[in-house]
């Protein structure tokens, strides 16, 4: 892979930006850091979500399922295995689960996929709850010496990985194939692209990334129970943030994550019962006002200014 001068410049700038945000724990207080953790967590989830859903237009609501599985990997595994093995383990389990989901649904139309992924988190939650009722165990305590700052840095590392991966996929044959699938699946199939395989391969990314994110965040919850780990809200928030930012660019979801996190925090503190309403209104805003997200909006503004000779 050969890198152009622009690539080098972008890489250097990204590394500098990463180094800067890594200093956050020393710059802000506890509340600021917890917002930081939330933002990086959703950046990781929404960006990896958009890597799959951007080009394929399949709306995945399985984030909560993968995330929950990841938290349980840490919750159960911490008793038996050293911590550093748990994150890759969660990634592998997430990828396997994603492959199974993909094999079952990605050959079919998008609607089946949405329903399947929506039900997945609920399915796993009911099964775990049932298992707990049978065995008599309730939740799991995750007691570690991992601090909020450690969680923050781990998530940041994961975010860097996701961005590198997205960048690499964009340059690869797989990325090229996916762009064609996104434009017209018929054309893609006729030009010899194995569309189902490409989609399944790509679906492994959000699956394993969400599972690793769950595994990283488990120590933050201290006490894990199914209704907390598999909360369906998470899936919807990720979808909204990614679409709000725009899935057309790698950095798009980030532009959605930051304002939405602050909005969500604000609403949760002032009128906690109306977060559902906020989710609903956001969906409508995305469909009717921002169909291409903020990224599309920036593009439209730049074009308009360009045509008027301002830029």
């Amino acid at each position: 892979m050969r890198l152009s001068p622009t690539d080098w410049r972008n890489l250097t700038l990204s590394a500098l930006a990463l180094a800067f945000v890594a200093c956050l724990p020393w710059l802000v207080g506890n509340y600021g850091l917890s917002i930081g953790v939330t933002i990086v967590m959703y950046t990781v989830l929404a960006t990896s979500w958009a890597l799959f859903s951007g080009p394929t237009h399949y709306i995945s609501l399985a984030t909560a399922a993968f995330f929950g599985v990841g938290t349980y990997v840490t919750g159960i595994g911490i008793e038996y295995l050293p911590y550093w093995t748990l994150l890759p383990l969660a990634g592998v389990i997430g990828a396997v689960l994603a492959a199974l989901v993909g094999l079952a649904t990605l050959r079919l139309s998008g609607v089946y996929f949405v329903i399947f992924t929506l039900g997945l988190a609920e399915f796993i939650r009911q099964v775990i709850t049932w298992g707990q009722n049978v065995s008599g165990a309730k939740g799991i305590y995750v007691l570690t010496s991992i601090t909020e700052a450690h969680i923050y840095w781990q998530l940041l590392g994961l975010a860097a990985l996701v961005y590198l991966l997205g960048w690499a996929i964009g340059r690869s044959r797989l990325g090229f194939a996916l762009r064609i699938i996104g434009d017209d699946e018929q054309v893609a199939r006729h030009s010899g692209i194995h569309t189902a395989r490409a989609k399944i391969l790509l679906f492994l990314v959000p699956g394993s990334v969400a599972a690793i994110t769950g595994a990283i965040l488990a120590p933050r919850y201290v006490y894990i129970e199914p209704s907390l780990a598999f909360t369906p809200m998470l899936s919807f928030q990720v979808v909204i943030m990614a679409l709000l930012g725009g899935t057309g660019r790698l950095w798009g979801p980030l532009v959605g994550v930051i304002p939405f996190t602050f909005l969500w925090e604000g609403i949760s503190i002032t009128v906690p019962n109306q977060t559902t309403l906020l989710l609903g209104v956001s969906f409508l805003v995305i469909v009717y006002l921002l169909p291409k997200g903020f990224v599309g909006l920036f593009g439209a503004i730049r074009r308009r200014m360009g045509s008027e000779g301002l830029v």
Binding site: V111, F236, G280, V287
Partner: peptide, 29 residues
């Protein structure tokens, strides 16, 4: 058809959340 599918899924999800929010506000949880 695919475009309509994605749009209508997002819109009806939105409507669903809006009505849950309204019913929560009117009738409580």
């Amino acid at each position: 058809r695919g475009q309509l599918e994605v749009d209508s899924i997002l819109t009806t999800f939105g409507l669903s959340f809006v009505s849950v929010g309204l019913m929560l506000a009117v009738f409580g949880g």
